[in-house]
Amino acid sequence: MLLFCEQLLNGLQLGVTLFLMSAGLTLVFGIMQVINLAHGSFYMIGAYVGATVALHSGSFLLAIFAALGASWLAGCLAEALILRHLYRRRHLDQVLATFGVILFCNEMTRIIWGRQPLFMDIPAALSGSVQILPGLPYPIYRLAVLAVGLAVAVLLWLIFTRTRIGMQVRAGAVNREMVAALGVNITLLYTLVFGCGAMLAGLAGLMAGPILAVEPGMGESILILTFVVIVIGGIGSVRGAFIGAVLVGLVDTLGRAFLPLLLRLLLSPATADSVAASLASMAIYIFMALVLVIKPKGLFPAHH
């Protein structure tokens, strides 16, 4: 039972990290109708800049600002230089241009930071673990990640439901011509949304830094998961992204944790282990296929 609680928490924590990645991407998808494969690169930039600043200054706080700033800047630059020219083009062009951006970013990190992974430590205040239940210690840092993810989710919800800019963004997702006609500076709004999406990705990268290896190509592994989240949640819906992210996090974690045990009831241990390992790595894709077969537009489609 304790194990199950712990795995549940692990799943949730993976889920909110995915949410940070997905929130920005789903907005970009939904509002600008643009596919951005390079979202993972912002995640990587956040992690790299954060790790570098943390290493040289020793301050995690400074690292946060640097990482957020760098990924925001990278996002705005990518939008202004490349993606802005592709809004009215085919999805195909967008896929290709951003594929090119991925190649470039990965190679640049190798040129600038070298080939070996970078080190990033957990800030002293958040190291160690706490007993959340008797007999169940849990790393404080992971709890902090969970908290930040939830806080961002609440913040986004507040922005979208309570502020003027949030309403413009939401309106843009439904009908951008109408919003433009109403006198909203749509170019600026797009750049802003894109930059913020990149910043959230950078935040996710920064927070992953102490847990994961900071290395070239780290963005792609999470990018594909992010796509799965967005498609399950419904493109353009932040609420969908949140629920999709948590579901994917849970399916992935619980699958890895409990499939071997489950299959051992049916098969011999050796076969069970091997089948479970294969199934666990495919679990989220199977889950996604199931969702789309039942609801082709995802759980919470933003467009009608």
């Binding site: 998808f29 796509f227 498609v231 790595s281 789309l292 077969v293 082709p296 537009k297």
Partner: peptide
């Protein structure tokens, strides 16, 4: 299965199926 969806969903779901098969062959 994929053609039940359109647009961006289609791009993503084709990608997901390919990844699924990728992991399938890795564990084959």
């Amino acid at each position: 299965l994929c053609l039940r969806t359109t647009g961006m969903h289609f791009i993503m779901i084709t990608l997901a199926f390919a990844q699924m098969l990728y992991y399938f062959f890795i564990s084959l």
